[in-house]
Design a protein around this nucleic acid. Structure first.
Lengths: 262, 262
DNA sequence: AATGTGTGTTACTATTTTAGTAACAAAAGT
DNA sequence: ACTTTTGTTACTAAAATAGTAACACACATT
């Protein structure tokens, strides 16, 4: 008898994908028992699913036949899923236009859980060329993260703070939970977020949300990034808030038309 | 009773992944029936799997609730699978080293079926900046493709030719099947492949295989690319075959150590 | 407005697959 | 040599999927 919950939902597929999602740049290699405990799937089923992924080329065993790693098929599928994502193609011209018009560094990202996935970015040479991670955890310390937090519903925000352990990355990073909460509240009323060298010394950013205008929920954000030595915060706020909000509006239109939800 | 074939293989997961693989840059949008016919999965099961992928965020429905597209979760997983693939990280320094030592354009790719997936590339400014596709179908017209074909076992090569419909991309492109077969044979005895403006006018390339030295099977290839106006073919062959084969050897070592198979 | 066609969705069970326990083998660590 | 851990296999109850068929809905044609 099928589960009453949802007959038209495949738990097996969900489990298989959850296994694949355990692998990434931070975790290139995992063992079978590790996978079983992390996913909560029993060992036999884990073995079956992992074996399937191996046979299909999504995973492979290391030479010593122990640890598992991503296989070439995962690489090629990743390729396609990344470049085939139409929003990625759609946001390019929007960001490029603003980039060439105003000559400022721009970044954009989508939410996945409590992480931000870098969508597309353009960088000016005047910015300290920082190798930004493509997956960002530190929502509390980044303009793109703050504006997302400010637009989450209270329940989601609470569960974010429940497990948050802030790390001081620069002298300006806020690490006290109450300070961060106050900052988020201020961000909410302000309508855009400010990151004053809290993530990288010498970089000031302002962020605005990408909203799905139909569901009225935040699905990502955009930011403008400036070298602090050439751009004092006051000057940025005077000159670039309009640019930021226009850009965010265009991005939100794209998101809404594409029907992206969280 | 479980299937006698393999109790430790999940067909459901295989089907779910095959659905996800139908999407990509060439095919950003598909319908349910299209998916069902392409995969050969019956409509109900397709519906279940697609529904699962939607609920998990890997797919989404367009606004008119008809066609399906990749979702943000596919994008983020793609990201991770792409950048988390250790061979991608491993080949970078190898190619970079050769690039800075010899100042030539270099490309590398892995096989997936009868396609080449671009792995990592460095390009010199002197090369006509061609936006190469990241997934390459025209194996017969590219140096990286030819050397792969030359190293396939006869059966695989036959099935490649069985469905091949060559397209003339430049005046030099070989489109007669017999010509192509002869070229592959010549490539095999030569040990490296030559592409003399068959893919892009003005670009000459030489290619060598990335081999898994344990299984003695080809898993990808590397190529050196030159602008034909500065580099006649003879000069390239005199000067760069050694560089190419050294590079291919290093790449093969990497592949073998990583245990990449086809 | 009526009709037909295609597409997505749901209902219903036979059939197949998966979960879970347990046992075993092979490494790895002590 | 012994213990512990990790991967693999056997077995069957329990659960999920496949397949058929019917239905609803939109769109196009008449």
């Amino acid at each position: 008898m099928p589960s009453k919950q949802d007959q038209y939902f495949s738990k097996t597929l969900e489990k298989g994908l959850s296994i694949l999602n355990l692998f990434g740049r931070e975790n290139p290699s995992r063992s079978l028992t590790e996978i079983a405990t992390l996913t909560g799937i029993n060992k036999t089923s884990t073995y079956r699913l992992v074996n399937t992924l191996i046979q299909l080329g999504y995973l492979r065993k290391s030479l010593n036949d122990k640890s598992l790693r991503l296989g070439p098929k995962a690489f090629s599928m990743g390729h396609e899923c990344f470049h085939g994502f139409d929003v990625f193609q759609g946001i390019k011209p929007i960001i490029d236009k603003t980039f060439f018009e105003h000559h400022i560094s721009i970044d954009s990202a989508l939410i996945d859980g409590y992480k931000l996935i870098s969508l597309y970015r353009r960088e000016m040479p005047n910015l300290v060329s920082f190798h930004l991670p493509l997956i960002m955890d530190e929502l509390y310390a980044r303009a793109m993260g703050k504006i997302v937090l400010a637009n989450l519903d209270p329940a989601a925000l609470d569960s974010y703070f429940a497990t948050l352990a802030p790390v001081k990355m620069t002298p300006h990073t806020l690490v006290d939970i109450e300070d961060i909460k106050a900052d988020i509240t201020a961000t909410k009323t302000r309508g855009y977020s400010i990151n004053h060298m809290e993530y990288i010394t010498g970089v000031i950013s302002i962020g605005a949300p990408m909203m799905n205008l139909t569901t009225k929920s935040v699905v990502g954000s955009v930011s403008l990034d400036f070298p602090s030595k050439d751009y004092p915060l006051e000057a940025i706020e005077q000159q670039y808030i309009g640019v930021l909000l226009t850009l965010a509006g265009e991005a939100s239109d794209l998101i809404t038309n594409a029907g992206i939800r969280r």
